[in-house]
Amino acid sequence: MAELMVETLPYKIADINLADWGRKEIELAEFEMPGLMALRKKYGTEKPLKGAQITGSLHMTIQTAVLIETLKELGADVRWASCNIFSTQDHAAAAIAKAGIPVFAWKGENLEEYWWCTEQALTWPDGSGPDLIVDDGGDATMMVLRGNEGEKNPSLLDAVVKQIDEIELLKRLKITLKSNPNKWKKAAEKLRGVSEETTTGVHRLYQLMEKGKLLFPAINVNDSVTKSKFDNLY
């Protein structure tokens, strides 16, 4: 895996042949997602996200595909990964890849692959990071912040940690530190903001802010009433 990091791939998914199936389900989902479709209609000509490079770290499902294509329609340049090793719907990822959007996600990643995918989503072909992050659980945000800390103080990447997810993150960051020692500093400087989907990620953001470790603004989407009182409940 490690040597793959020097280049950026157009996408990495389970099977591009699933794209037509994915497309059919995306079209059905569009009918059930009137909010997103209304935004496309309202902002389709204005393109308020024109020029924005957006990384998404959020379950690569059919519904997320409709979000990705909405961001695209509003003018954004999007790259995507899942925020869970089991949550990708491979036919959704295939449809997104076939539409020419770089996506790095498949159902049943291992944790080494997971962080590789997240880093791919955070890395444009010129090596730079995103302007904005759509985060779910805070992993993409954490990769940028922990990477940045690790560049300033590499011993932090040798910390003894218990959680296997974190062990694999630190391994990934060490590999990148060798090949590209300023990557995350530059990424953190470029980032204009993060929008966070879920309770856990929001909790992490407030903790970071209290410790003075948050380096960019964040919008807590979870605590919109139309999010937590619906999505979380249902």
């Binding site: 989902a29 924005a52 997320t64 979000l67 989407v221 139309t226």
Partner: peptide, 21 residues
Amino acid sequence: HPSFVMSNSFTNQTLAQIELW
């Protein structure tokens, strides 16, 4: 999740991205 409920969440996400940008 079903599409309809995710449309609510993701409409918020999209509006948040526009705000930040």
